[in-house]
């Protein structure tokens, strides 16, 4: 497929966790990501949702090679990135930038805003003079709604929302093709959250950036995404366009997630019938056999504990991994 920006095929990420006693070191493998596949088209937004521990962030890290892939393939613009050598990496990395969850922790406290935002330039645009760099930094700051007079301040002088804007300015300064946003708004207040979401949407339109938007908040994901992927314990449960997923959620987990989101409207919130999941998500180190969701699923039957469901295509661009979905 030539048109896709990013092709992820059967990506698996494994971590080792220590599980020994005083005398023996034993390690358990656990799969944070298990055979996940998806594609991302240019200037598209894919929302990635799931509860904590479902592997959302691991997937983001795997894409930018911050963690090693156990198996699988990441293809960027038709080229296999997993095989590329270190010296070729810069071409890919230049085009993929990250925005992190904790705005203050992701900025170096001993660097000024101008140093933080121009750091990508130091790595990838060495030919520019310092004056040109400064000009670009100022432009980027204005683009994200920060006054360029604040260029010599330090991160602690800014509020959470402003720090997140600095993080975004750093991400857009190289004019990347893809920005991976790892829970960019969950640490912010509601009113600031709305500002940052508006900013991301606006930047995406202006610069044709694709977004991989990771969040646990489905209402944010609904607002910003074109397509949504639902993860549970490192497996894809459902992937569909925003309209399909929210009007016709097919996987029992997606249904439960949707019904758990509170609606800020007293009348409809109180009339709504909830079908709450029981219990917590099981430990990813010892996932249930067969379908990983079966321990919390209402519809689970014998087959669910024996066989892992395969992803079924129920319509174009809508895949579901459940035994009890007919197509």
């Amino acid at each position: 497929m030539k048109d896709n920006l990013l092709d992820i095929e059967n990506v698996t990420v494994k971590y080792k966790v220590k599980n020994g006693n005083l005398f023996f070191n034993r390690y358990n493998d656990f799969k944070a990501i298990d055979r996940v596949s998806f594609t991302l088209a240019p200037s598209e937004t894919l929302g990635l949702v799931g509860e904590s521990g479902c592997g959302k962030s691991s997937l983001a890290r795997a894409i930018v090679k911050l963690v090693r892939l156990e198996s699988g393939k990441v293809t960027w613009l038709g080229k296999d990135w997993t095989l590329s050598q270190k010296n070729e990496d810069s071409q890919f990395k230049e085009n993929i930038q990250l925005v992190f969850q904790d705005p203050l922790a992701s900025l170096n406290p001993r660097m000024t805003v101008s140093e933080i935002i121009s750091e990508p330039l130091e790595n990838y645009r060495r030919e520019l003079t310092s004056l040109q760099k400064k000009e670009l930094v100022k432009q980027a700051m204005e683009t994200v709604g920060l006054s360029s007079s604040m260029i010599n301040r330090y991160p602690h002088e800014f509020s959470g929302g402003q720090c997140q804007r600095i993080g975004i300015a750093r991400a857009i300064i190289l004019k990347p093709k893809l920005i991976i946003c790892d829970e960019p708004v969950s640490a912010l207040d509601v009113s600031i959250q709305a500002q940052v979401i508006n900013l991301l949407k606006d930047l995406q339109r202006r610069f044709n950036i694709a977004l991989l938007f990771i969040s646990h908040d489905l209402s944010v994901v609904k607002h910003i995404s074109d397509r949504v992927m639902v993860l549970y314990l490192g497996r894809v449960m459902e992937i569909a366009s925003v309209n399909d997923l929210f009007s016709n959620p097919t996987h029992p987990y997606s249904k439960a997630l949707l019904s758990a989101i509170p609606i800020p409207d007293p009348i409809s919130e109180r009339q709504r019938k909830r079908d709450n999941l029981v219990g917590d998500a099981p430990s990813p180190i010892f996932p249930p056999s067969g379908c990983v969701f079966r321990t919390r699923c209402r519809n689970s039957t014998n087959i669910c504990s024996i066989k892992e469901p395969e992803e079924k295509k129920i319509k174009l661009g809508h895949r579901v991994a459940c035994h009890h979905v007919s197509y």
Partner: peptide
Amino acid sequence: LLSCSLSLDKKIDFLEAIKGQP
């Protein structure tokens, strides 16, 4: 606050954010 809180039952293109910060 009400107009910038996201909800599943409304789809709006642009959120009416409160400008500035606390």
